[in-house]
Design a protein around this nucleic acid. Structure first.
Lengths: 226, 226
DNA sequence: GCAAAAGTGTTGTCAGTACACCCATGG
DNA sequence: CCATGGGTGTACTGACAACACTTTTGC
């Protein structure tokens, strides 16, 4: 018998807003069957001559209007019964953005697009619950050994934003002094000659993530445990 | 245009022999075109109604005679030009065994099967070089935070075997006393009332990996850094 | 001047590392 | 008795954790 397996990609995009201190996931409401009108991860079929990375970026853009240039492969889901129509194998990707930097809008193939807090998720289509659960676990694990959190913050940010992000992601309080010492000792932040005032309290110095130095250190084999 | 993408699985199986202190990879010589007569990772097409895990175990068994029940998903390779015939996406898996516990034999679809030292690899078919390179990196990384090495040793083994394994895998010498202290403090080894003598020298006490205790500790969230 | 958030140092503890000698056996 | 590999203890060092008061601003 001839093999007839379809291949899709799905994207788990996480967002973080410092104001509300919540992590959210981008979901789309499905326009077509199956699971019509239900929420799902953005994604779709891979085109014949396109790479998986191109496919997931294209689908994400088509369904949500987002343009992300870095998505990391998460896992490939291939249980025979995961799609009720036919055999569909899906390669899942995940990425991180700062929602307020982007405008999302339902486009082709999606009836609606929305950010959902990870604590208030709807029931998802297909096996997307499973995919999302794995993505959340990976995010939590990853942030402790790679400074990926910077993608979730503004280009320039006060130190307290970073601290809040870690508090939220790790789900526990962290010591401000120790955290600051540790992060600064990694030597991947540049302190700017700029301050930001947010209503009351002492204005904070702004910092910037130094990508060049980060990649240089990483190439030298330095590990960033946080 | 209708999507027509084929799906394969490939297995990277690592083996370790304490005697020679070398890590090897299992490769098959291809019976059919393309790359006929060239070495490649064992693998093949996923059947219509079979899970990816079943597929990779079946293909591995068909081509090499091996029966492995735990293979971990490594990565999915989907560049459009990776197979000269047509669009083929491959999900790669990796696993660890002790070669002397198994008998390998070329079976259907393979002309020959052989263990290759990771230091003496032939040029591989398709993008299998890339897959293997990633698998080796993963193996090295993984062994430092999970005691996967036990799969590569005999059921009962002298401590020096474990030490040699880590020396080989990490590619550097390690302090015998410190290593022993650290591993024993993890409390996942049982010391047996048995000794083994290997020619000359003082006979060594045998140890056994305690899986129950390991999984119990792991479920409690304990991390095994080695 | 007070509320609010930012910024900052010291000390104890523990785990990691470096390091060298004695032990048990076979031949 | 000697060659071979197995088994062990101590002292130093550096990273991490615990902990509270001062500074700068807005109102």
């Amino acid at each position: 018998m001839k093999q007839s397996i379809k291949l899709t990609v799905d994207a788990v995009v996480f967002g973080y807003e410092a104001k509300t201190e919540t992590i959210s996931v981008l979901l789309v409401k499905r326009k077509y069957k199956p699971f019509q009108g239900k929420w799902a991860l953005p994604g779709g079929f891979v085109l014949q001559e396109e790479s998986l990375e191109d496919a997931v970026e294209r689908e994400l853009n088509e369904e949500t209007g987002l343009q992300i240039n870095y998505l990391e492969q998460l896992y490939t889901f291939g249980q025979p019964e995961r799609d009720p129509r036919s055999r569909v194998v899906s390669v899942a990707y995940f990425g991180l953005i700062k929602p307020s930097n982007f405008k999302i809008a339902a486009a082709t193939d999606a009836e609606d697009v929305q950010w959902f807090k990870t604590t208030e998720l709807p029931k998802l289509s297909f096996d997307h619950d499973k995919i999302l659960k794995l993505a959340i676990a990976r995010l939590k694990g990853k942030i402790t050994y790679e400074p990926i959190g910077f993608q979730l913050l503004d280009n320039k940010f006060p130190f307290s934003d970073l601290e809040k992000l870690y508090t939220t992601l790790l789900g526990r309080t962290i010591d401000r002094r120790n955290f600051r010492k540790k992060i600064l000792s990694l030597n991947i932040l540049d302190e700017l000659d700029e301050k930001i005032s947010r209503g009351s309290g002492r204005p904070a110095n702004l910092f910037k993530f130094n990508k060049e130095r980060y990649f240089q250190l990483k190439n030298e084999g330095i590990i960033f445990e946080i």
